[in-house]
Amino acid sequence: MASLVGYQPEDEASHPPNAYPDYVSTRKRAPVHPPIRIAHTLSEITGPRLVRGASVLESLDLTRGSGGEALGERVIISGRVLDGNGRPIPNILLEIWQANAAGRYAHEEDRHDAPLDPHFSGAGCLLSDAQGRYRFVTIRPGAYPWANHYNAWRPSHIHFSVFGPGFASRLITQMYFPGDPLLALDPIFNSVSAPEARDRLIAAFDVETTIPERALGYRFDIVLRGRNATPMETSR
């Protein structure tokens, strides 16, 4: 007999529902039927660790991508990837993407009338180190308008895609900046009902990470789903 350690149920109070009508795109896309809960097996406990072909860098600097310096306010984002018990998880793949300083994505479908920056692609990937830490240098993204409601603007945010240790621990989220007045009006941010959970989406300004004469630093820890304390039995 081999033993497998499953994952705890997702903490529902920490996550948004899929059906959230204030975010208009959910209305025709959120399933109507409740999902069917299944027991964890090898299929859920194992999972991809690397995306094949992804060039993973130890340190990532998005501000000097292609022969020149990106425009905008340089920032350093750093933090740790932690499990549900606060233990660091090494070698976790993080993929990030964001708008440029003007609020425009380098994406063909982005129709916002703001300039592209030839020196800023806004996308990259990196691995957490042996202590679960990650760090990258980027440009603070601009706010951008979207058609969700009258005068709708997304707060400045950086998208994160994180592979935890297993299929069950996958996470895609967005990191926001402290003090942004648009947060109170944003239905995506506010789809998380618990205020203390929403706070976990906001990076903290960190003077220790800040580099003199160069860039402001922010800390953003990513906490993945917790494992069970005891293994379940399975035959092999």
Binding site: R52, W97, A106, Q174, I188, A197, V223
Partner: peptide
């Protein structure tokens, strides 16, 4: 900030350049 899981947020429409590359399928 109280310790707890980082909430999910939508992938949004503009993930392509970061997440999709030829051959991953």
């Amino acid at each position: 900030m109280k310790f707890g899981p980082t909430p999910w947020q939508t992938v949004g429409p503009f993930f392509g350049p970061a997440l999709v590359a030829p051959g991953l399928d």
